[in-house]
Amino acid sequence: MLITAWIIVIVLFIVGMIGAVYPIFPGAVAIYAAFFVYGWMVSFEPLGVWFWVIQTTIFIALIVADYAVGALGVKKFGGSRASMIGSTIGLIAGPFVIPVAGLLLGPFLGAVIAELIIGTEFKKSLSVGLGALVGLLSSVAVKLVLQLLMVILFLVWVL
């Protein structure tokens, strides 16, 4: 049972780290779920109240940062609410429409198209698209760091 538990926990950690880059995977949720899998299959005993307080705080920070950092990139480059919505749609749809490259092109094109639809000049729309791309890359970096921190804290706590 112990080996099975660790296999599931490791798979969830891998899915979580992939989710930091590829938005279709559940990212932080998978990592957080791994803690429960460990508790149910091995023991909740080593996971005391402070473990849950710290991990839940990081988990909430991850969710907030995911949206805030991306939106900040668009706003910093002069984007509107429409471009934030467009970049989010592009982030979700991009990988399906253009596999691999769509992950980067989706938010960029979504923001540019949204800005053009509301009447923004082309050059400014491109700048906002660049902001969406910068926001996405910044968000991915923040998620990778925080999710890695969650995994390391778990390992330190239980090993």
Rank of each mutant, 00 (worst) to 15 (best):
A82Q: 11
S87K: 01
L136I: 05
T120C: 01
G78D: 08
V69Q: 07
F96T: 11
D66V: 00
R81N: 10
A114L: 04
V134R: 11
G86E: 01
I89P: 13
S127V: 08
L133K: 03
V128F: 02
A68C: 03
M84R: 14
E121C: 00
I98Q: 01
A141W: 11
T120D: 02
G70E: 09
K124Q: 12
G78L: 05
T88F: 14
S138M: 14
G90V: 11
K75V: 06
S125Y: 01
A114Y: 10
L116C: 06
S125P: 13
L105M: 10
P107A: 01
G131D: 01
P99A: 01
K143M: 13
V134N: 11
F122A: 09
A68P: 09
D66Y: 09
F122V: 08
V112R: 04
V69Y: 08
L104T: 06
P99D: 03
A65T: 10
G129P: 07
A141T: 15
D66N: 14
R81K: 15
P95L: 05
A114N: 12
G79A: 04
L103I: 13
V128K: 07
A132H: 04
A114P: 14
A132T: 05
V145L: 14
A65N: 08
T120Q: 06
I85C: 03
F122W: 13
K123P: 10
G129M: 02
L136R: 10
V128S: 08
S139P: 09
F77G: 05
V112Q: 01
S83C: 08
L146W: 10
L104N: 09
K75E: 04
I92K: 12
L130S: 08
L149P: 09
G94L: 05
L109W: 07
A111Y: 04
G129N: 03
L146E: 07
L109R: 09
G70F: 02
L137E: 00
D66G: 10
A114W: 10
Y67F: 15
S87L: 04
F96M: 14
L149A: 15
L116I: 12
S125N: 11
I117S: 11
A111D: 01
V112S: 00
G94R: 07
L130V: 15
L103A: 10
L144Y: 12
P107E: 04
V142H: 00
A111C: 13
F108H: 02
A68E: 04
A71T: 15
I89C: 04
G102P: 14
L103K: 02
L72Y: 15
L103S: 00
G70R: 13
K76S: 07
M150R: 05
G90D: 10
R81E: 07
A82P: 13
T88P: 08
F77I: 05
E121W: 00
L148Q: 04
A68W: 08
L91F: 09
L146S: 14
G135W: 04
V134A: 15
G78V: 04
R81W: 06
I118R: 15
V128D: 02
S83T: 09
G79M: 11
V100N: 03
T88D: 02
G135E: 01
G119M: 12
G135V: 01
G119F: 07
L146V: 06
A132C: 06
P95G: 07
A132Q: 03
S125R: 13
I117R: 05
A82G: 03
P99Q: 00
L130I: 15
A82M: 06
V69A: 08
V100D: 02
I117N: 09
L91Y: 08
L137D: 03
S127G: 15
G79D: 12
